[in-house]
């Protein structure tokens, strides 16, 4: 699985910079994510990883630079437009709709495919009903991807779910939009070893079954080293290294960023 795949470039960040007043959270970053790979972004706290995600998904607009997805620019698009282009995401601190049922959460994820004009909705036109039914079936399929638990509990409120299951439901919601690229922001944060091992498995399955490209932010080396095809390391908003996991592990700059500078002559 490791090794540089020479596939087509799906997402490209060109000199992307984002500053908040005097603070430059992301400093001219260049990234190329190729179709079908699992690409990880790692880095110490405050390195700007989540900001990169927010820039890609349109939550922030870059101060300068260009973001190209599937051959066209997605810079300055609103989050819902970015999603319609084929980029879905999950959040670091899970942002489910807690007081909606599991089914409703999965259905909201498919919002772009269901007509939401007043006329279709009020008169329940055939195209609306067909789309709603299709979305319902698709939601069931997606829930079933994670086993029977979510399907069986589909009418329960999302707030009742256990932590690891909430992460799964968030992925289900993201998959609803039929994305080409899935951004996972710390998909194993707060999970124990067994749950983490499970998450690693399903992330790999996701790529296979849904023909996805996956970009993830992760802290756990077990995850990044195990499943990533390539890794980029951020520190203070700059990309300090990029490469296959084996190279990153031995990169001096990376070790320095995480552990501090080697003392000369020591």
């Amino acid at each position: 699985m490791a090794g540089t795949s020479k596939g087509e470039v799906l997402l490209q960040l060109k000199n992307v910079t984002k500053s908040f007043g005097g603070l430059t959270a992301v400093d001219s970053i260049n990234l190329e994510i190729r179709k079908g790979e699992i690409f990880s972004i790692i880095g110490p706290n405050g390195a700007g990883k989540t900001t990169v995600f927010n820039l890609i998904t349109g939550i922030y607009q870059p101060t300068s630079g260009e973001i190209i997805f599937n051959g066209s620019s997605i810079k300055n698009l609103s989050p819902d437009r970015v999603l319609r282009r084929g980029i879905a995401r999950t959040f670091q601190n899970i942002r489910l709709f807690n007081n909606m049922t599991i089914m409703e959460n999965a259905m909201v994820g498919q919002h772009p495919f269901i007509p939401s004009d007043l006329f279709s909705v009020t008169f329940r036109l055939p195209n609306y009903r067909a789309a709603e039914k299709k979305a319902h079936n698709r939601a069931l399929e997606l829930l079933a991807f994670f086993g029977s638990e979510l399907v069986m509990r589909k009418e329960e409120y999302a707030v009742n779910l256990a932590y690891a299951v909430r992460r799964r439901l968030e992925i289900v919601r993201a998959l609803g939009s039929r994305p080409k690229l899935l951004l996972l922001d710390e998909p194993t944060a707060g999970m124990n070893d067994a749950e983490t091992a499970d998450a690693i498995k399903y992330i790999q399955r996701l790529r296979q079954e849904f023909d996805l490209t996956i970009l993830l932010i992760e802290h756990k080396l077990q995850v990044t080293m195990g499943i990533s095809d390539r890794i980029a390391v951020l520190d203070y908003g700059k990309k300090i290294a990029e490469g296959i996991p084996a190279d990153i592990q031995h990169n001096d700059l990376v070790i320095e960023a995480y552990l501090g500078r080697k003392v000369e002559g020591a």
Binding site: L83, V108, G176, S177
Partner: peptide, 11 residues
């Protein structure tokens, strides 16, 4: 419930 998550879900 969550404006940002809704927007990121295509609303």
């Amino acid at each position: 419930e969550d404006e940002l998550a809704a927007s990121a879900s295509g609303v």
